[in-house]
Structure formats: structure tokens, C-alpha cells
């Protein structure tokens, strides 16, 4: 796959310039008459995207610049009418977010959580994929067992973990007690709670990474390894110089998706610790949820939180893609 993309890349680029030139030369009306059917074809999709994504996004941007809350947006319910009294406040919500010291602490933890989760899931997923990518007995069985965590809905697994990790009545501490070892405050100690949420997230995410990477490994041509062995390359050299580069189309997708998913991994944190103890495991999305839905619902503040998270992710994704492009990859 990688080699294929590379080989095609210059050709594609050339094609694009040729087409571009032709377009620039032709009159607009001519292009419309030639391509109107294409626009007609995409129009319904554009319309749906506009309604489902574009409008809420713009509405979100607008709300984030107001002081709208549950109490002042105006509504009529049965016999009760409450007038709309919210107003435009400019960047106040953003100023408030960035001047809150808790935001920066939370941002740091969110990054740590994302990096740790992605590194561990991709690393361990790759390890398992390598193990399964060879001829061994019961390979099918292993694959089924390893994919199971992914097959169960995340919230169900998370709830099971919540009970496994319960301080007094959980399986984990029960086993430690049975073995005569001191118990661990899995979810009640701030540091251990951080470790626990990462562990559960890794447990949930490993299966997807393993399957994706295994697919990538299986598309690597055997001849490359044979040729390398003829040249006397060690196992490590084969891994560094064949496996990793050949996996890159898969691994970059997996890493990018993993980053976005972890950054916004709401269920694991919320269901396992509810962001506690005392906010120790709160990431940006769970904090945004808390602001929005606990107590008086703060539409403007949560919209601003959402925008901050969106911008952070867009910046992260584009930096990552740029770094890949520098390495000669075509996204």
C-alpha cells in the first residue's frame, strides 16, 4: 500500500496541475454547464451536512459569545412563559475559561491521559498483532478472545470495571486480600484513579488497534522479509526497516483516531470516576459536560468549552498531518 501510494504520488500531482490549468482557462459558465449534474448530485449531502453539522456549529459559536443559560433563553411551557433575556457578551466566556487555573491543570492531565492512552494502546496493540501474525495453533480463538472487549459496548465494560475496582467489594481488591497483599484504592486515591482510568481505556482500546494493525501487517509482502533475511538483517532491523514503514498508512490512521477518541473519551472517565476524586480525573470533555449539565445549565459556557476543545483537536490533527507530510507521506 505504502509503495503504491508513493509511486502514484507524482503522477497524481501532475494530473492535478493539468486539470487545474484547464479549469482556470475555461469560462465559469462553461464549467457549470459541464458539471451541473455533479453539483446536483452532492446538493442533498451538502444540505444534510449543513443542517446537521453546519447549523449547530454556527449556533454553538454564536452561543459561546452570549451569556445564555437554562434560565434566560426564553420559552413557553404550558401556562408558564419566560422571556429571553440573554445577551451578547463577546469573548467573556473564553476569557473566563483561560483565566481559570483549573482549566490549565485539566488541560495538562487531558494531554497526559491522551498520550499515555494512545502510546499504550498502539504499542500493546502492535505487540499483540505481531504475536498473532504468525502461524500458531488456536490463532482464530486468540483473535476472538482479544477482540471481545471491543465487541461489548464501552459503557457496559466500564461499569463492570467500576465494580471490579470497587474499594471494599471489588474483585481486584478481593484477589489482593486473598493473596494476603495490601489492597489498592483503585478509584478513591487521586493518583491511582488516574492510573485506573488509563488502564481501563487501554483495555478497551487495545482490540481495535490490534485488529487494525494486524490487517496492516498482513498486507506487508512476505518477499520483503525474505529479501532482508538473505541480506542478513536481524529481526530488529527487519522490524525497524520493513514492518514499521510498511505499517505507516495504518498506524498513522490508528494514532490519529486514537488521539481524537482518547481526548474526547467521555464514557470511561464519567462512568468510572465521574471525574473524581475531587476532580482528579476530570478531562476537558467531562468538565464541559459538568459545566453544561450539572446545576443550572450553562449553554454559553459549555458552547465555549466545546469550541476550545474543537480548536485544540483541529490544531493537534493538523500538526500531526503536517509532520507526516514532511516525512513524505500523502494524506
Amino acid at each position: 500500500m505504502t509503495t503504491g501510494t508513493r509511486r502514484d504520488a507524482p503522477g497524481l500531482a501532475a494530473d492535478r496541475t493539468v486539470r487545474g490549468r484547464r479549469r482556470a482557462a475555461g469560462p465559469f459558465a462553461g464549467r457549470w454547464s459541464a458539471h451541473w449534474y455533479a453539483w446536483a448530485m452532492v446538493a442533498p449531502v451538502l444540505l444534510v451536512m449543513g443542517v446537521l453539522i453546519g447549523y449547530p456549529l454556527l449556533r454553538g459559536v454564536y452561543l459561546s459569545l452570549t451569556d445564555a443559560t437554562e434560565a434566560n433563553v426564553g420559552r413557553t411551557i404550558g401556562m408558564n412563559t419566560i422571556p429571553a433575556t440573554y445577551r451578547f457578551v463577546g469573548l467573556d466566556n473564553y476569557v473566563q475559561i483561560f483565566s481559570d487555573s483549573e482549566f490549565w491543570l485539566r488541560l495538562g492531565w487531558t494531554f497526559l491521559w491522551t498520550v499515555a492512552s494512545v502510546t499504550l494502546t498502539v504499542g500493546l496493540g502492535l505487540g499483540l498483532a505481531m504475536l498473532l501474525n504468525r502461524r500458531l495453533r488456536f490463532r482464530g480463538l486468540y483473535r476472538v478472545i482479544l477482540i471481545l472487549p471491543w465487541a461489548a459496548p464501552a459503557f457496559v465494560s466500564t461499569f463492570i470495571w467500576r465494580y471490579v475496582l470497587n474499594n471494599d467489594f471489588g474483585l481486584a481488591n478481593g484477589m489482593l486480600r486473598a493473596a494476603g497483599l495490601p489492597t489498592v484504592e483503585w478509584l478513591d486515591d487521586p493518583t491511582m484513579a488516574k492510573v485506573s482510568v488509563i488502564l481501563v481505556n487501554v483495555w478497551l482500546g487495545i482490540a481495535f488497534n490490534m485488529v487494525a494493525l494486524l490487517g496492516g501487517l498482513q498486507s506487508v509482502p512476505r518477499e520483503l522479509y525474505e529479501a532482508a533475511r538473505v541480506d542478513g538483517a536481524s529481526a530488529w532491523q527487519q522490524f525497524r526497516n520493513i514492518t514499521l514503514p510498511m505499517l505507516r498508512p495504518v498506524s498513522r490512521t490508528v494514532i490519529l483516531l486514537g488521539t481524537i477518541w482518547s481526548f474526547n473519551q467521555f464514557p470511561v472517565i464519567f462512568l468510572l470516576t465521574r471525574g473524581g476524586p475531587n476532580g482528579a480525573t476530570e478531562i476537558l470533555v467531562t468538565a464541559a459536560y459538568r459545566d453544561a449539565f450539572m446545576g443550572l445549565r450553562d449553554y454559553s459556557g459549555s458552547a465555549a468549552n466545546g469550541m476550545v476543545i474543537l480548536v485544540l483537536l483541529v490544531v493537534m490533527a493538523s500538526l500531526y498531518l503536517r509532520s507526516l507530510r514532511k516525512q513524505g507521506e500523502v494524506w
Partner: peptide, 8 residues
């Protein structure tokens, strides 16, 4: 990225 517009 899917979750963010969801808030809005």
C-alpha cells in the same frame, strides 16, 4: 472530533 459539534 465527532463529539465536539455534538455539544452545539
Amino acid at each position: 472530533m465527532r463529539r465536539t459539534p455534538l455539544v452545539g
